[in-house]
Design a protein around this nucleic acid. Structure first.
Length: 289
DNA sequence: GTCCAGGATCGGA
DNA sequence: TCCGATCATGGA
């Protein structure tokens, strides 16, 4: 049995919510409370029970890699408290969805993943990314057939025909444009990390197939810009239903964290917008089992 | 068999 | 500037 490094479980770190809120595509629940996936070029198994979270790695790896990947040095309790001051509805949602953390994913991986995500289902997104990794990524030593997400340099000379194995449909040209512009430096992801958010959006949308939604996802999930606020159909419904007349500015510099909690809430509660569920923000946050 | 997906692009009003 | 058709694929 492989050894683990464990930390204390608390309400602001839920593996189930963190992995199943649509921000990442390479972790799967292999049995209840037990997850396995690839990130940061490594294979990780991670389990959680009421007492602890178990990272199946040594303490050095936890300190160097996973503490940062799961953003565990940030005080999500304090952020939830600050957001709760702004509005009663967001207070209830932060409580309901507590446990989500914004993962610090690789920016290039996030870029390609969310290009693939457009007009697509999550199970199929996962399949396409899996095929991308198996066909172009490096195998992780001793993993028994797990592959890293391919680096941009490796993909630089890939031709359109070679992407047919992904079966990603019309997105192949978008992927090729992203590879090209990142590889040649026309779009510099690390430089974008330091830009103000308006300029960062503009830079990302130079890539064909990257519109407002995908750009926002890359900023939030790949560049840890917590002000980014991906606005998809679910979030549009949720905003009109729960925060009528308001915009993401309501949530300030941690809008992205609020967004992820609202998204999780609205999907589990099937918020339809336009009063289909309840009749506006007077409706209390609905609980589901 | 039909619907639709964490959208973006394109062309025509 | 706005709006709808279209894009390729396959899970539900």
């Amino acid at each position: 049995m492989q050894s683990y490094y464990k930390i204390k479980s608390d309400k602001f770190f839920s593996l189930e919510k963190t992995f199943n809120c649509g921000q990442c595509f390479r972790f799967d629940e292999v049995e209840p409370g037990c997850f396995r996936g690839v990130a940061q070029g490594r294979l990780l198994r991670i389990d959680q029970d009421t007492q602890s979270v178990y990272f199946y790695c040594d303490k050095d790896e936890y300190d160097e890699v996973w503490n940062d990947y799961f953003d565990l040095s940030r005080d999500y309790g304090k952020i939830a408290g600050d957001l709760s001051q702004k509005d009663e509805c967001i207070r209830e949602i932060m409580e309901y969805s507590a446990g989500i953390r914004i993962l610090k994913q690789d920016p290039f991986e996030a870029l390609i993943s969310f290009i693939i995500s457009q007009n697509n289902h999550i199970p199929r997104i996962k399949g396409i990314i899996q095929r991308l990794c198996e066909n172009f990524g490096e195998e992780i030593r001793g993993s028994g057939g797990e592959y890293k997400f391919p680096r941009v340099e490796v993909l630089a000379d890939v031709k359109k025909e070679e992407l047919s194995c992904l079966r990603c449909g019309f997105r192949d040209e978008y992927i090729l444009d992203a590879i090209h512009k990142v590889n040649c430096g026309e779009v510099d992801l690390e430089a974008i990390r330091c830009m103000d958010i308006a300029k960062a959006r503009e830079e990302l949308m130079k890539i064909k197939g990257v519109g407002p939604k995908v750009a926002e996802c890359v900023l939030l999930y790949g560049l840890n810009n917590l002000e980014a606020f991906p606005m998809d159909v679910w979030m549009k419904r949720a905003m009109s239903e729960l925060f009528p007349g308001r915009d993401p500015g309501l949530f300030g510099k941690y809008a992205g964290i609020a967004q992820q909690h609202i998204f999780h809430y609205s999907r589990l509660n099937k918020i339809k917008g336009n009063g289909v569920v309840g009749s506006g923000r007077k409706v209390a946050v609905k609980k589901v089992l």
